[in-house]
């Protein structure tokens, strides 16, 4: 139990997916202008990462491994993730239309979020068992949510700030991200 807890804290704070491992930078920069959409994206990614971890584990250990085609893991995982995102999209459209219209164009983007494929591959690489994989996927997703939420809070303040023209947009977001990463690296050193 303690192990699982440590794993979750590591994925969430110490080895944060965005600030330390550099997964999911595209949506981190692209969808962080407003807190509302940033949180929506973060939640959708967390959800997808948890389910993807839960599904890729049996795919690897019950299908790829017995057939000795582990080298196809990248292809198999990305296909599964693409289908999963499509299913989530269809489900949201029927069940929670308000959330669907809020996330709209961001949903298909989750397929190409490297955090999702990254967590699936990391689970296999680190030999996590099923429970560990799911916890790791969930915690890493929460780490992404935390990161994109923090950045969006900073970026909302930018609207009132005088930013030099060349720095407007992505450059200042990257610099704000860098300063947030500095805080997270402090966490890493203190553990």
């Amino acid at each position: 139990m303690a192990n699982i807890f440590l794993l979750a804290i590591t994925a969430l704070l110490i080895e944060n997916f965005v600030f330390v491992k550099f997964y999911g930078i595209c949506p981190f920069l692209g969808v962080s202008q407003k807190t509302e959409t940033a949180v929506g994206m973060g939640l959708a990614v967390t959800f997808t990462m948890t389910i993807a971890s839960a599904l890729t584990w049996p795919l690897y250990y019950f299908v790829l491994k017995p057939l000795q085609i582990e080298y196809l893991e990248t292809i198999a995982f990305i296909l599964l993730i693409a289908c999963l995102v499509q299913l989530i999209e269809m489900f949201l459209q029927k069940a929670i239309p308000s959330l669907y219209s809020a996330l709209g164009i961001y949903l298909p983007l989750i397929t190409t979020n490297c955090a999702v494929l990254g967590v699936a591959l990391l689970n296999v690489q680190n030999d996590y068992n099923f429970i560990e994989s799911v916890v790791y996927g969930f915690a890493a997703g929460l780490g992404f949510l935390l990161a994109i939420f923090l950045l969006s809070l900073v970026r909302e303040r930018f609207e009132f700030a005088k930013i030099p023209k060349p720095f407007q947009g992505v450059p200042i977001a990257l610099i704000a991200g860098g300063l947030l990463a500095l805080a997270f690296s402090g966490l890493r050193l203190s553990f």
């Binding site: 060349p166 990257l174 610099i175």
Partner: peptide, 21 residues
């Protein structure tokens, strides 16, 4: 370190945007 990566890339993109303008 990751921090430097963010800061340097941000500065370089700002430079490119300045040149473009």
């Amino acid at each position: 370190s990751p921090v430097g990566g963010f800061l340097i890339l941000g500065a370089l993109i700002a430079l490119v945007q300045w040149l473009q303008s």
